[in-house]
Amino acid sequence: MSMDKVFGIAGSALAAQLVRMNTTASNLANASNTSDSAEGAYRAKRVVFRTLLQDQAAGEQTRYAGSIHIGNVVDDPTPSPRSYDPGNPSADDDGYVWQSNVNEVAEMVEMTAAARSYRNNIEVVNTAKQMMMRTLEVMKS
C-alpha cells in the first residue's frame, strides 16, 4: 500500500536530518578546540545525503526506494586557521596554535536549515496520517 511508503520515506528523512543536526552540534561544541598541528586541529564535519535508488531498494522490506540515507560524512576542506599564541598550552615549539575550521555562523544556518527540513517532513507524516485515518473511517458512515 502506497501510504505506508510515505511514512517510511518521510521517516528516513527525519532520521537523516537528525544526523545532520547532531553533526552541527558536534561542530559547534568543538569550535574552540586548539591543536599544535594542522592535522590535529578539529575539522568541521558535513553529512552527504543520498537517495536510495530503485535497484538498491529491491528485495528490502524496511527501506523504500526514494528514501534517504547518509552517504558519508566528509571533513570541511577549509584550511585550519593558525594564530601566534605562545601562552596557549597547546602551542607548538614556535608558539603557534591551530584552531578548528568551524564557522559558527555557517553552523547556525545549517542547524536552522536542518530544523526546517525536519519540520517539513513532520508535516508530511501528519498529513499522511490524517489521510489514513479518514480512509479507515470510510466504511463507518
Binding site: V6, I9, A10, F49, S67, V124, T127
Partner: peptide, 10 residues
C-alpha cells in the same frame, strides 16, 4: 502523495 513525499524528503 508518495512521489511528492519522496521529493520533500530529498
Amino acid at each position: 502523495m508518495e512521489v511528492l513525499s519522496t521529493n520533500i524528503a530529498n
